[in-house]
Design a protein around this nucleic acid. Structure first.
Lengths: 198, 198
DNA sequence: CGCTCGATCTAACCATTGGAAAGATAGTCT
DNA sequence: AGACTATCTTTCCAATGGTTAGATCGAGCG
């Protein structure tokens, strides 16, 4: 019986090690630069070992995407719990994109992985619930939620790609708060959640 | 003396033919599925011919990105000229993303090409001018413009990735108009451009 | 303890890819 | 005609994703 961790066989938790190695590899170089062999090298195993645990490259990236959606859902929930402010959920979204860039870049490139994987769908749905504030948004909530999501997602993407003019500054969360202020929430929805103050 | 076109040498306008083949190839399969050899096959030449005209794969994708930014800038300008409504520029942005998906997907994946290429920078700057309404936005314009750009860019990305819930419908331009309505433009800027009506 | 069994991992192989280099081809210019 | 240059092909190489056969090793069972 091994200490406490579930070191399965020879290497010991290779799957998790490979996942971490993948995220690190994507971290420097982006998803395009992530090869199964590079990840395997980083973990000190053969590339076939990675293929064994994840099926193929898309399988590995699918695992990254799942982990990413789960992390994101958690952070969005926590942001809402602590601030009770819709705008702060958006800020958390952008913060996640910047802090977990590797995960985020994979998540929003569905051609790279199996976007129809059940676990992916579940984790993504959980994220959507946090974004819309409910599992079954009415038309009004749907529109405002889509606007808010688009706003923060667009900012995150433009920021990560370095597309925004330099004058916007170097603090993405601050920019997120600023532009969140331009989102006009219609009166009939204003009572529900809404940003703090004002 | 060839008819009228500038058929340079053996094949005749191979560069343009390869560019079109590249866009088509990206069209079915996404940028990740575009190989130099596949593009060359489609154009009926060897993959080395493609490398000759564009230097390398990144060079070919750089050409796609440049063409994309130029097209986008043109469409944004035309949208403003015809409607004089800021919101319609945003709608045109989303329409471009959907209609020229191949270009758009390349443009916003700078790791795929040489984003620091002078022609890219110029074409991108021209697009930014159309988005911000001016080459030198003041802080207010900068904030509103960034919000609007983020909003439309995010919608385009989420739409293309199929991430939005199905209830939002199947008409991306309609969604763009809807969420554009939630963008609150502060009074001190309201006189400048602004959407029609209201 | 000795054996089998199955999970894990490696070695070797294959087709495809991006890229480089050498050479063939064909316009153009004098 | 002959030289020159742009264009394109053939050929080669290293790296990649994926597959398969086999090696390794832990666990369960007698």
């Amino acid at each position: 019986m091994p200490a406490a961790a579930a070191r399965p066989y020879h290497h010991g938790d290779l799957r998790r090690a490979l996942l971490r190695a993948a995220v690190e590899t994507i971290g420097d170089g982006g998803p395009a630069a992530m090869s199964l062999r590079a990840v395997a090298r980083r973990a000190g195993v053969s590339h076939a070992a990675a293929a064994y645990h994840f099926g193929d490259k898309a399988g590995l990236l699918t695992a990254v995407a799942i982990e990413g959606y789960q992390l994101l859902a958690g952070e969005l929930e926590q942001a809402w719990a602590t601030h009770q402010a819709y705008a702060e959920v958006g800020v958390a979204y952008v913060r996640f994109a910047v802090r977990h860039r590797a995960h985020f870049e994979v998540m929003y490139q569905p051609e790279l992985y199996r976007a129809d994987d059940p676990e992916v769908l579940a984790a993504r749905a959980a994220t959507a619930v946090r974004l819309y504030g409910t599992a079954r948004p009415d038309p009004g909530q749907l529109a405002v939620g889509t606007a808010a999501w688009s706003l923060m997602h667009g900012l995150a993407m433009l920021w990560l790609d370095g597309n925004l003019p330099p004058q916007v500054g170097s603090d993405p969360e601050a920019v997120a708060r600023t532009i969140a202020g331009y989102l006009e929430v219609p009166p009939e929805l204003r009572g529900r959640d809404i940003r703090r103050g004002r």
